[in-house]
Design a protein around this nucleic acid. Structure first.
Lengths: 331, 331
DNA sequence: TCTGGCACTCCAGCCTATCGACTGCCAGCG
DNA sequence: CGCTGGCAGTCGATAGGCTGGAGTGCCAGA
């Protein structure tokens, strides 16, 4: 734990560095209104802070830069939850009331919304459709050998998978199978249903079984949407860092793991190396779970340089996750 | 028009520069097997080529670099259509036979496919769903006030839009409206249908009308998918160029206009300033229309530095557009 | 018409010197 | 005892000067 003055100095360093991206020196800090000591005293304190790992000097005779530990102390102790300013809140509200159509499309746009609001990369890990109960199933024939299985979920989203037909599968059988599946699945979650009871009609039973199989096979591997590549390019000066961050962001699996990990550990911010993804060690991730009907079904987050604006990112992510949750509940 | 030797030299310069990204000097060219003259002669020819605008020197005493005009001559006269190598062709085939589910998702993945195959940004301007005939319409009630309209198209893709219900819209009315719409729309294109004939039941008619309206409202403004931000970051050394290219790629409107423009002018390659989008003046764009049932309903393309591998890009874009077209036709 | 050779140009890399922004430390003051 | 002003020291960033090398243009001769 740090005494009051060290705390004030650390806070000032972090804020100055976030604002300028330049190492900050003792005299700058001494000029801060809230600090009423001379630069010499600040120097002493900063030396302590460095010794304890909150700050580092890029080199002797340079100012100091916060370490991951320094940022961590800042977000844990010096950051008020901070309301999002009214204009932004309204913008988010408008976005979600204007949003319509496909869930995926909305999620994708949400990642872009996060990106533009925070000037960082936005990440949305999709609520998996399987966790939402089924409302209706229908099988639509397209030709003699092809059909599409359409599933409508209770939240209004729709999934579809192709299905191959065999001889004897006529329209009647298809709609019978659809009706039977609807009855068997209505109100239940796809993952919870292993099979429906037989109807006695072999063809219908076969259709039901294969359709169900196809549906479970399509069980979307957690879908993830990212946006804001340009923001990443703006955030870092070194082009290699831009490259490695962008390359990592394109590996969906890594992003999903990263975000889920943080959420599952009950954290909302992972700073620098804390998240353990080496190519992103210059980045922090701020996340919030998306809760739908009391269940945690997805996450939203932003990813930016460790010197990002944490209060703003936290507030934004919070508001967006909440409104996204509401929006999905409504359907 | 250039004589044979100038042509050979220009070609060698372009290829060397594409491979190395370094200004190429006369002696390098003279060593090329297909060039059987001394470096002095090559120098003379290169001076001519520069005078005529095919090459430039970044500065005296540096090698030469192709201009946009130089690349243009190269792709117009020196590039054989070039088959894609078998392995890649197979990869594309596998991709499309494995592709399933939502059209949008597939298009999005197609942009990523283009990106990974060519190491450039991939762009897909979506074939608008409205051009595909409808197979079936269904309205599924979710609650007393909300429903989802599901449209299955003949190619197996599915669209859905939310619909608000009013008092008196019960399940019976919903399915009646669905059936009526199915009958009225079956085999026809959404855009071609302005209204269905009345049934006599006011509630059903209202449902049909509003559902149809909602469907036409969702008429996606040309959708565009881009992928491969990391490739862009790898293609340019200067971080400002990366920034401006990525920022431009995020402006969907600009991308759609850019691609449509090129396709509409009947071109398949736009080099540097040819496409007129200033922030992308360091980029070339290679496109191919996606043709479905004889109609041009979308485009695929790649965007990369002017020193991209044109033959490969052309071949890739060609194969992908063709297979994407087939895939969508089949559904 | 082509070629070898030569003089010339100019960037990239390296070294050096200078400047300035820091720090650490110390002695003195309240 | 803690704070402060001051001073010496450190090191990166910047600018200037030098050199080596890659490349050119041009010319005279085959």
């Amino acid at each position: 734990m740090l005494d009051e003055r060290k705390t004030a100095i650390l806070s000032a360093v972090v804020q100055e560095y976030i604002a300028t991206a330049q190492p900050v020196g003792s005299s700058h800090i001494a000029e801060t209104p809230s600090i009423n000591v001379s630069s010499a005293t600040v120097r002493n304190e900063m030396a302590h802070l460095e010794h304890e790992g909150y700050l580092v000097q890029p080199h002797t005779s340079a100012g100091r830069v916060p370490t991951d530990k320094g940022y961590r102390y800042f977000v844990d102790h010096l950051t008020t939850p901070g309301r999002l300013d009214a204009a932004t809140t309204r913008q988010v509200g408008e976005f979600f009331s204007a949003a319509h159509g496909r869930l995926e499309e909305m999620l994708h746009q949400t990642s872009n919304l996060l990106a533009t609001l925070t000037n960082n990369a936005g990440v949305v890990v999709g609520p998996r459709a399987e966790a939402v109960p089924v409302r209706r199933v229908q099988i639509v024939g397209l030709s003699a050998t092809a059909a599409t299985v359409v599933v409508v979920f209770t939240n209004g989203t729709v999934e579809n998978v192709p299905l191959e037909l065999v001889e004897g599968d006529d329209e009647l059988k298809l709609s019978a199978a659809g009706a039977h599946l609807s009855a068997g699945l209505d109100g239940r979650v796809l993952g919870a249903v292993s099979d429906v009871e037989p109807t006695g009609d072999a063809a219908v039973d076969r259709l039901c079984t294969t359709a169900l199989e196809a549906l479970r096979a399509t069980a979307s591997p957690d879908q993830v949407f990212t946006g804001g590549a340009a923001a990443v390019a703006k955030a870092f000066d070194a082009v290699e860092v831009v490259r490695s961050v962008l390359a990592t962001l394109e590996q969906q699996f890594v992003v999903v793991t990263l975000v889920s990990d943080i959420v599952n550990r009950g954290m909302s911010v992972a700073i620098g190396v804390e998240h353990g993804v080496e190519p992103l060690s210059a980045c922090s991730v701020v996340v919030a779970p998306v809760v739908i009907d009391g269940e945690h079904l997805g996450s939203v987050g932003v990813l930016g340089p460790t010197r990002m604006n944490y209060p703003q990112a936290l507030a934004t992510v919070e508001v967006v996750s909440e409104q996204l949750g509401n929006r999905i509940e409504e359907g």
